Amino acid sequence: MGAQRRAGLADMTELAIIGAGRAAVVHAEASRSTPGVQLIGIGGRSLGRASAVAAELGCEELTVDDMIKRADMLVVAVPPGDTGEVLARIPLERPLIVESPVAMNSAIDTEHRHAAHRPNAMLGANLLHAPLARQWLAAINDLTDVHHLVLRANGVRPAWHSANADSSGVTLDLGARLLPVLLAAAAQRVVEVSAKLHRREGFDRAGELDLRLEDGRSMRAEFHWGAEPPAADIEAASATAVVSFGLWPFPVLEVDGNEIASAQSQEPLHALGFVSQLQRLKAVTEQQAEPWPELASGVGTLRIIEAASLSDSSGKPCQLA
Rank of each mutant, 00 (worst) to 15 (best):
A321Y: 10
S238W: 06
D66W: 12
Q319Y: 05
S313T: 06
I260L: 12
A24V: 01
D11E: 15
A163I: 06
F250S: 09
E228F: 10
G8F: 01
V191Q: 08
L143K: 04
V191I: 15
M219P: 02
E99H: 05
G81H: 12
V299N: 06
T34F: 00
A232H: 02
G175P: 05
A195F: 03
D11I: 05
Q38S: 13
A116I: 02
E93P: 05
H270T: 13
A159S: 14
L15N: 10
T144P: 07
L281G: 04
V299P: 02
G300L: 02
K196N: 11
H270R: 15
P131K: 09
R200S: 12
R199L: 14
T110G: 12
G21M: 08
A139F: 00
L172H: 12
L320P: 01
R45S: 14
A237V: 07
V243A: 13
M67D: 11
N120H: 13
L183K: 01
Q277T: 06
D66Y: 13
F250Y: 14
A153I: 07
A116Y: 00
G175I: 02
L96D: 03
T240N: 12
L74I: 05
L182A: 03
A20L: 08
Q188G: 02
D109L: 14
V98W: 02
L92D: 12
V26A: 11
M219L: 15
A261R: 09
R6I: 11
F274G: 07
I234Q: 06
P95I: 00
E267D: 12
D65H: 13
G300N: 07
A55M: 08
L197T: 05
L179Y: 00
R5N: 07
S265A: 15
L149A: 04
I234Y: 00
A187P: 03
S313A: 14
A16Y: 06
A16D: 06
V26P: 06
N258P: 03
P249N: 05
E201L: 14
L47I: 09
E99W: 01
A30G: 08
G48L: 06
D210W: 06
E208H: 10
L96T: 01
L253C: 10
W160L: 13
Q38E: 15
M73L: 15
M219Y: 00
D173F: 00
S162F: 03
V75S: 04
E61C: 09
T171G: 13
C318M: 09
G202W: 09
E85T: 12
G48A: 09
L174S: 07
N258D: 13
R152Y: 11
G202I: 11
M122R: 01
L295R: 04
A130R: 02
S218K: 10
G43W: 00
R32Q: 15
D11L: 15
S33G: 13
S314A: 03
H117A: 14
V190H: 00
A184L: 08
S313M: 03
V190K: 05
Q287E: 15
L15I: 04
S194Q: 10
A24K: 01
H224G: 02
A261W: 02
V284R: 01
G257A: 10
R113V: 15
P229Y: 12
A16M: 05
G84Y: 00
L151F: 03
P293D: 04
